[in-house]
Design a protein around this nucleic acid. Structure first.
Lengths: 107, 107
DNA sequence: ATTAGTACCTTGTATAATAAGGTACTTTGT
DNA sequence: ACAAAGTACCTTATTATACAAGGTACTAAT
């Protein structure tokens, strides 16, 4: 899998998952891994970025199965950004599709 | 438009266009710009990379309209890579789509 | 001559994903 | 009691790519 394809999209994936429910880092890795290769070394810095720019807040919660979990919750600005990013992504994918299908709009 | 989305995909776009006909850099910029924002500062280094790894070869041709044009032509290995990258891209887009649609395969 | 358009190129900067390391907790087996 | 495995967190250094901002040089038109 081309690593470069993921640039920026993993952020969208994380945000999109958080629109459904609050999740912790390890959980996000496992969830995303069902569809896309991802490593922990990617997720944790990414989550830190999202928190720094105010798209998410965090809270700790104990676990019966190991270390305490740090849950991530979308903020209002995070929700707005997610909506916009998702639209951008769809437009982008369609644009690339046009190019790949040799589709020149003006032909 | 999210710059990060483009990472790696522009390479695919260039290669895909070259499967149809040989093109020169400035032409590629204009063609791709119809669908995606791109700058010359991106295309020329990219083309150099593609040449260095042997996906394309180049030849010069005079022009009536300005400086001589450097045409890029896909090699056999370039064609193979393009095929694979295109498949990878389609799989990737579908995977992201699954995630965004909240689609968990196992639900 | 000077501008606009065509066409090429390079350097420095920013961003994001990853590998490879590490810490610490809980449960299970011995 | 101790070790191993699984859960869960984190950091640092490396790599790759896109872009802005600069530059060069040619041609045609003003």
């Amino acid at each position: 899998m081309n690593i470069q394809f993921k640039k920026g999209v993993l952020e969208l994936c994380v945000l999109a998952l958080l629109t459904k429910k609050n999740m912790y880092g390890y959980d996000l890795v496992n969830e995303i891994s069902k569809n896309i290769d991802i490593s922990e070394g990617t997720i944790y810095p990414l989550l830190r970025r999202l928190k720094n720019v105010g798209y998410v807040t965090t809270y700790l919660q104990e676990s019966q199965e190991g270390a305490p979990r740090k849950y991530y919750k979308l903020t209002l600005s995070g929700q707005k950004v997610t909506d916009e990013m998702q639209k951008d992504w769809n437009v982008f994918v369609e644009s690339v599709g046009n190019l790949l299908r040799g589709g020149d709009i003006n032909e």
